[in-house]
């Protein structure tokens, strides 16, 4: 089969909504895009453990502690599923981690913001996981088989995450004046960054068009963002939280909430490494990776010794 025939076949598969599987032929650019997006998604899950991990020891009740731990554990697990899905494209996890450490691979910007108070744990679960889930539901229909299967599993498991966050906000909004203030403060800090999680507006997004053609991405940044806004604004109002946007207005003709201008300069600043926690998050990951090296080496050495001993037993 010529390259051209392969490409035609690939495209027709995409058009027919058939999934692309690891051993199938795919254009290099598709593979590269897939590796970039999947590994970025995996790194985001793992880096996302840090801001929440920051509060595990201080969680205010045994119940809250267990829930938070289980949630962070899910995120690690989801990072793991996504790394595995990426590995089917012919890249090792070592290499992905290397790329992360060298700054060649990114992770979601949102985790470069600090979790300052306990209310942030609520806001992260409700807003950040809420935004992530809108995106992930859409990605269940992505064209790459392992990614799609991963998303289906992840969506199923993450359905409690957003509720967990919202429950914290509800409890605090029903609590003391200090708790209410804490919740509103978290809302103020996390609202805009959550909206930025969907990426730049469609006009400015360099990757969107090709990704849509390949059905890697199924809906555009702006469509997903609006879906998130519409459901979240009502949830905020329901518990008495103010959305920190003076231009927020319900548009009767479209049936959507219109929002004010997103500060994309901030978005680019954070992407370029100048968010409050960029250096901290990456430095932490590198440190942990390096500190764990001797453990991984020991485990491998042990396995190799065992195999050798077994072989010796067989041959003698």
């Amino acid at each position: 089969m010529t390259e051209e025939e392969k490409l035609t076949r690939f495209n027709s598969k995409i058009d027919k909504e058939e999934k692309i599987e690891p051993k199938d032929w795919m254009p290099d650019a598709y593979r590269k895009t897939m590796i970039r997006q999947l590994s970025q998604h995996a790194h985001s899950e793992v880096i996302g453990m840090q801001p929440e991990g920051n509060w595990v020891l201080r969680a205010p009740s045994l119940r809250a502690k267990k829930i938070l731990l289980a949630k962070i554990q899910d995120e690690g697990g989801h990072g793991l599923y996504l790394y595995s899905a990426t590995e089917t494209l012919g890249i090792d996890r070592d290499e992905m981690i290397q790329q992360l450490h060298e700054g060649k691979a990114k992770y979601s910007n949102i985790f470069n913001y600090p979790a300052l108070t306990w209310a942030d744990i609520g806001a992260i679960g409700w807003l950040v996981d809420g935004a992530a889930i809108v995106n992930q539901i859409s990605l269940q229909r992505t064209s790459y088989g392992p990614y799609s299967r991963g998303m289906i599993r992840i969506c199923k498991e993450e359905s409690f995450h957003q509720r967990q966050g919202y429950e914290i906000m509800v409890t605090m909004m029903n609590g003391t004046p200090e708790q209410k203030q804490m919740a509103q403060d978290a809302m103020n800090r996390w609202w805009w960054p959550s909206l930025m999680m969907f990426g730049p507006p469609d006009n400015d997004s360099s990757h969107t068009k090709q990704s849509m053609r390949w059905k890697i991405k199924r809906e555009s940044n702006d469509v997903l963002r609006q879906r998130f806004i519409d459901k979240t604004v009502d949830q905020a109002h329901f518990i008495g939280l103010t959305v920190p946007d003076k231009d927020l207005k319900f548009n009767k003709s479209t049936g959507h909430w219109d929002i004010g201008k997103i500060n994309w300069d901030e978005f680019h600043e954070v992407i370029n490494g100048n968010g409050p926690c960029n250096k901290q998050r990456l430095a932490h990951h590198i440190k942990v990776h390096n500190e764990g090296r001797w453990v991984r080496e020991a485990a491998m050495a042990f396995a190799e010794n065992e195999t050798r001993t077994k072989k010796e037993l067989v041959t003698h």
């Binding site: 793992v46 453990m49 840090q50 991990g53 595990v56 020891l57 045994l62 502690k65 267990k66 731990l69 289980a70 962070i72 554990q73 690690g76 697990g77 990072g79 793991l80 790394y83 932490h284 942990v288 500190e291 764990g292 090296r293 453990v295 991984r296």
Partner: peptide, 29 residues
Amino acid sequence: LAEWCSNGPILEEDLAMTNLSLDHFGQAE
């Protein structure tokens, strides 16, 4: 054990230690 959260020597072990920690919190409760 919860202090190991996001500090494990490999991702798999990070989750394993979280499981140990969760068991202990459950028993404490």
